[in-house]
Structure formats: structure tokens, C-alpha cells
Computed example of a mutant assay.
Amino acid sequence: MDPRRAQNGLIRTAVQGLNTANQRHPWSHNDAFHSWILTRAPARRGLAIDIGCGRGELAAILANHFSTVHALDTDPDMRRATGQRCAGLANVHVENVPLDDLPQDADQITMIAVLHHLDLDTALRQVSHSLAPGGRFLCVGLARLDGPTDIAWDLACALTNPVIGYIRHPWPADSAATEAPIPTKEPRQSVDQIREALDRLMPGAVLRRRLAFRYTIEWTKPLQ
């Protein structure tokens, strides 16, 4: 047997096995970071803004920790889903607000799998402008693969994904999701490019690669 053909066959088998495991034990890579956000919430908790709120899972959680939550999304299906989820929460306002009209003096601004949908520099500037001094920007994002380090992290994510799925969702999935699909987009910037933009526009921001094919950004606006 051709060794190269045998190797390719093993790779295909491994990939198929990973895909099967992921389908049997699905989990939300985005929801997994809610606890990361909550443990980094600022001391002052008046106004929170969740940009790209999706189906409203995070907005509903933030409503228990902040006086007012603005859940923003440009997609009408996502706003509708968030409105339904947060129907009993009087302090959650679901809106379609452009970045340059963000509410001011926010104590916290969050994005989960959203930054790559936006113009990077514009989004970071608007977030910085809208945060109150001492306010916190907490972002969970996706980046384009660019170089051996990114590829190594992606491989680690692929290998650990079914393990995490089994731990978080040990029972096999028996039905497809019926919720409105969240809009997706391929990321354009690499981790290094995002870090360079942060150095220019949010000095002191901390960017870390994470499992689940994600990175995180944590930044506190200086107190003037």
C-alpha cells in the first residue's frame, strides 16, 4: 500500500470521527464564555451594552447584574428572538443602533463573535468613545488563521472540541436546532492584526487565544 495514501486515509477517518463526535455532543462555543464575562464585570454596573446580541442569551444574564441593558443587533430575526427571550425583563432594551449612535457612558460593552462582522478600527474607536471612564470592554472573537501558531491553536481546538462537548453535553443530541440561525461571516483579520489595532486604539488591552476557536479581549478605559 502507498504510505501517503494510507496516511491520507487515516486523516480522513480521524476527521470523520471528530465530526461525528461533535454532532452527537454539540455545545455553544459562544455561550461557554458567559461566565468569563460575568467574572470580569466592572464594579459599577449601571449600563451594559451587548453589541450583536444574537438570540439574547447574554442580554438576559446581564439583566440580573446591570441596571440597564441595551441589546443591539442589525438582524431583525435576532432582535425578535432577543425580544422574546427578554420579554419579562423591563431593564432590557432591544434595538438596532449604529455604532456611531451607541449610548454613552456605558459601564460595560460586550461582543461575542461580532467584531469580525464590523470594521475593526471603527468598532474599537466607537467602543472606546462610548465607555465611561473605568468602563470595561469584553470581547470574544474569531480570527483568520495566519501562520504556524494560529494553525497549532486551531488544531488544539479541533482535538479538544469533542471532549469539551462530551463534558458539557454528555447525552447524544437527538434533534436539530429549530431556533433562527445566527448570521455568520468569515473573519478577515488575524490575531496579530487585531493585536496591532488594539495597541493603537486601546493601549493596555489584553488579547488571549482560547480554545473553542476563539480569542478574548479585555480592556478597561482609563480614568482620564
Results as ranks from 00 to 15, higher is better:
E95M: 07
D101M: 08
D146M: 00
V94Q: 04
A87F: 08
D75H: 04
L89T: 02
P148Y: 01
D121Q: 11
L131C: 12
A123G: 13
D101C: 09
L138R: 02
A87D: 12
R125K: 15
L99C: 08
V114C: 09
D107A: 12
L102I: 07
P133T: 11
L99S: 09
T110M: 14
R80V: 00
I112Q: 15
T82Q: 03
G134C: 07
L138Y: 06
R125T: 15
I109M: 14
D77E: 03
L102P: 09
L138I: 08
C139G: 08
A113W: 12
P103W: 13
R125H: 14
H116P: 09
R144N: 05
L131G: 09
T110K: 10
A132I: 09
H117D: 11
G141A: 10
P133G: 10
V127R: 05
A143P: 00
V127P: 05
L72H: 01
D150K: 01
D119H: 14
R85C: 05
D154H: 06
A90C: 05
A113Q: 14
D154R: 07
L124V: 12
N96A: 09
D150N: 01
L131S: 09
H117A: 10
L72F: 03
A90F: 00
C86I: 01
A123N: 13
D75A: 02
A152N: 04
L72D: 04
A90R: 11
A113T: 15
R144C: 08
H116M: 10
A132W: 07
R80T: 10
L115T: 09
I112G: 12
A90V: 02
L102M: 12
D101S: 12
D146T: 01
C86S: 01
N96E: 08
E95K: 10
A123V: 14
V127Q: 08
T74A: 11
H93R: 09
L155S: 03
R144G: 05
I112W: 13
E95V: 06
L120M: 14
G134Y: 06
A106E: 14
R79S: 03
A143F: 05
V140F: 06
L115M: 13
I109G: 13
P98I: 11
D150M: 00
D77L: 04
A113I: 14
A87M: 11
P148T: 04
Q126N: 13
D150V: 00
G88C: 10
P133N: 09
G88F: 07
G88N: 14
A81Q: 06
R144M: 07
T110H: 13
T122D: 15
G135M: 06
H117T: 10
G141L: 14
A123C: 15
L138S: 06
